[in-house]
Amino acid sequence: MSKTSPNAAAQSRERRVWYLIAAVIVAALPLFVTDSYWRTNLIVCALNILLAIGLDFVLGYAGQLNLGQSAFYGLGAYSSTLLVLKLGLPFWAAFAIGTLMAGAAGALLSFFAVRLRGHYLAIASLGFAVIIYQILLNWISLTQGPLGIYGIAPPPTVAFPGLPQIAFGDLRNLFYLTAGFTLIVYVLLDQMVHSPIGETLTAIREDEVSAASLGIDGPKWKAFAFAVSSAAAGAAGCFYAPLVGTLVPDAFFVSESFMILAMVIVGGMGTLVGPVFGAVLLTILPEFLRSLGDMRLIIYGASVTLAVLFMPGGIVEAFHLLRHRLFPEGEMR
């Protein structure tokens, strides 16, 4: 038994090395990507990663199909923006409240859907997404409906004494802010899924009755996973508004939930790193296909379908198979 425990310590060290590598990549990216179009795409990538790893936490680990991610995204975006506009709250206070509100909405949805699972939960969460979209569209006195909210300011400039000011109107700084935040969330989620919390959530995913026989409170942990997942989406929404500068309900239409789902599935659900690749691929790929006009939607849809059909474990599984084929001896590391 002593042979397995140093292994766990080594894995823990290895994870920290990967965190560091990811931080270096985040730090270096704006040095190579200098034009504002691609820098904007990088920020969108970071937000999509945040949405996808959040969904993966509840879907890949706790096994709960949440199709409400677009609604939580919208809740974060609209509530933080309105708190700044209507109540004059500082951006970061609005950010915190918007994130918490989305998380609370997720926990509440899970609480009401506690007896539902599989397709039924999917439909309930989809219904929730439709309701939120309709509210954003029709509560015109608050959200201005389809007219949208314009001229949303970037997060306020940060000034540390003795250092140059950091203005978030600058896309490089906004990238560091969003990607840095996403990386922190990734690290926290990664630590959680490699802790007894991960064991608990996967036990619920595999068999809830059996999990209860081990003392696991299924409804409580599902609500927790939902809250974490939707809070991540809410935070992404809080960043989305100042990035785009405009809020319209169509940005949070139900189809957005399926986009995020596609990122998780194409990347490989139940592995936190998979949805990162899925999100990057499905954010950047359409940009390269843009010159093809409407053809790009067909190519996009076809590639997602093919990915699901031929590599059901996503990019991560395909990578493992490839490594296994190239290095048949097995574990090379």
Partner: peptide, 15 residues
């Protein structure tokens, strides 16, 4: 928990 390893099944019992 069929997809989890034998050891992981027992570890879940430590909840």
């Amino acid at each position: 928990f069929k997809q989890l390893s034998v050891l992981e099944n027992v570890l879940a019992g430590y909840h």
